[in-house]
Structures are given as structure tokens and as C-alpha cells.
């Protein structure tokens, strides 16, 4: 599932790059795989996906199984240990943290990827269109973004909960609704300068249609910043998920996410059970590093100026 979405993201970018001709895309691929850090990042990302998908097979406990002798006041006894089968220890409610980290990682990866994908696709197109067309269209499109940025989003989420009920789909819609706004602003800002460049003016002069110009000339030149911002969105969305779940729309107990696990671990920080924080935080950190190096590699590989 994860790898699928991941592949989809690659395909997405591939598709954007393709319009410039297969040889360039080949070129980018070669350049990406020449970048050691990027390849290492990709491997780590695949490893994390594998962990999220198959880690559950190695867990000795179900993620919702409570060991009543290791919970609450006795949580300090739930230390990570190979012999007890709780490789990562137990959480505050006496559940196996390994199984829960596996589960949390898969949900959070999905959240992060969906959030940045929506941002990349919707935000970039929206922003590039607004910036390129300019004038009144730009004004209206950007004022819509201003309004969406300022409305009390919490009520949108609560209404979604009340009207549609809770489900993972609603979580992704909630994430998607908010993730693209900043991306749109950034894409539009860059478009404003790009559209004055010679190659765009040349394209206009030769009568290329505006939509084609946006797809072929504007967006490829935006990709650098878009990819960087998309990797920045990953942690933001993973954390934002815990807020959505707080309202009751997203991931519900006994299911979990990295954000929820980190939150729970952080509240036990002074209680002598630091493993509850460090394992999920560690996975979060590794995921971010992997996303960064992959994103950075993609950026280098796809930079149209870097020939």
C-alpha cells in the first residue's frame, strides 16, 4: 500500500518530467541513482515501508492487547526486552509498543505521503495557474486561499465528523484540505518570476497554449521548491494528524499513529519511561531523514538548469 503510493508519487513527478522528453527523464533517473545520499534515503524509506507492512509479523502481541500487569502504575516494568517479547517495551496502557509502532508508522507514512501528494498536485497546479494567468483571476484565487487559511478549521473537521462519521478516508480528506494552501502560495510566488523569463516569453510568442506553458515550462521550473516544501509537509501533516484525531475524526484508539505515540510518550517524559517517547520519535526522525535525502536527490536530478 505504502510502496504503491510511493511509486505513484514517483510516477507523478515522472509524468511531469516526461513532457520534457524521455531522454531528460532518463537523465534525471541516472543522476538520482548516482547520488549516494539519495539512494541511501530511498533504501531507508523502503525499509521503513517494509517495517510498516510486515513488522507486525514479528510482533509477539496484538497492538491492542493489554497486559494488565504492565500498565499505569506498573508501566515502569514494561521496559524494552527481547525475552519478554516487548522489543520496544509497553506503552502506558500496557500494550506492546513494537506492534503499536509498526501500526503507527504505517498510518503516519500514509498521512505524510497523502498530505504532500495533495499539496504537490493541487497546490502546484493552483498556484501556477493563479500566478501565470495573473490579474483578477490571480486576485480571486489568492483571496480564496487567504480565506481558507483563516477560517477556524477545527469546525470544518468537527462538521465532517458529525456529517460523515469517522473513517480513515475522512482523515485524509481533512489532511488534504489544509495541506495545499501554503504550497499554492509558494508556487504562485515562484511563477510570478518564472513567467517573465525568456523561455516562457518565447513559448508565448510561438503561440503555445497557456495550459501547455504552465505544464511544460512553469511547473518543471517550480519542481525544486515544490519537492523541498513537500518534504517539509511530511512531518507537519504527521503531527497535524494527532490534532484531527483529538477531535475524533481520524485515527481512533486502539489504532494509533506516530503522532499519538509521541504525544503519549511525551506526557510520560518525567515518569521514568522514556522508551515510550524514544522509539516512536526515533522512527519519526528516520522517516524524515529518508524523505529529506530522497527529496533532495529528486530536486538535484530534476533541476532543469542543472544540465
Amino acid at each position: 500500500m505504502i510502496t504503491q503510493t510511493d511509486v505513484k508519487m514517483l510516477e507523478e513527478t515522472a509524468h511531469l518530467a516526461q513532457v520534457r522528453g524521455r531522454s531528460l527523464w532518463e537523465d534525471a533517473r541516472v543522476r538520482f541513482f548516482r547520488n549516494k545520499a539519495a539512494v541511501a534515503g530511498l533504501f531507508v524509506l523502503i525499509a521503513i515501508c517494509a517495517f510498516a507492512l510486515f513488522g507486525g509479523l514479528f510482533a509477539k502481541f496484538e497492538p491492542d492487547y493489554v497486559d494488565f500487569s504492565l500498565m499505569g502504575a506498573n508501566a515502569y516494568q514494561g521496559v524494552p526486552s527481547l525475552s519478554s517479547g516487548h522489543y520496544f517495551g509497553t506503552d502506558i496502557d500496557g500494550r506492546d509498543l513494537f506492534a503499536r509502532t509498526v501500526q503507527g508508522t504505517s498510518i503516519s507514512l500514509l498521512v505524510g505521503i497523502v498530505g504532500s501528494l495533495v499539496a504537490v498536485v493541487v497546490g502546484t497546479l493552483y498556484g501556477a495557474t493563479a500566478g501565470y494567468v495573473g490579474g483578477r483571476t490571480d486576485g480571486i484565487m489568492m483571496r480564496i486561499v487567504d480565506i481558507l487559511m483563516s477560517i477556524p478549521f477545527m469546525f470544518v473537521l468537527i462538521l465532517m465528523l458529525v456529517i460523515f462519521g469517522r473513517s480513515i478516508l475522512m482523515l485524509f480528506i481533512g489532511i488534504g484540505l489544509i495541506s495545499w494552501l501554503n504550497m499554492a502560495r509558494i508556487a504562485r510566488g515562484q511563477t510570478l518570476t518564472i513567467k517573465n523569463k525568456e523561455f516562457v516569453e518565447a513559448a508565448i510568442a510561438t503561440g503555445v497554449s497557456p495550459f501547455t506553458i504552465i505544464l511544460r515550462h512553469i511547473i518543471p521550473n517550480l519542481l525544486g521548491i515544490v519537492i523541498v516544501y513537500a518534504t517539509l509537509l511530511v512531518p507537519e501533516m504527521i503531527i497535524f494528524e494527532s490534532f484531527i484525531s483529538y477531535l475524533g475524526l481520524g485515527v481512533q484508539e486502539p489504532n494509533t499513529s506516530l503522532g499519538a505515540l509521541i504525544n503519549a510518550g511525551a506526557s510520560q517524559m518525567t515518569n521514568g519511561t522514556l522508551w515510550m517517547l524514544f522509539y516512536p520519535l526515533g522512527f519519526f526522525l528516520i522517516t524524515l531523514f529518508a524523505f529529506f535525502f530522497v527529496g533532495d536527490g529528486l530536486r538535484d536530478a530534476l533541476d532543469p538548469k542543472d544540465r
Partner: peptide, 8 residues
């Protein structure tokens, strides 16, 4: 810095 959310 990004992996350390402000609530942590």
C-alpha cells in the same frame, strides 16, 4: 529540529 515537535 523538525522531528522534535514543539509539544515534545
Amino acid at each position: 529540529a523538525q522531528a522534535l515537535p514543539n509539544f515534545v
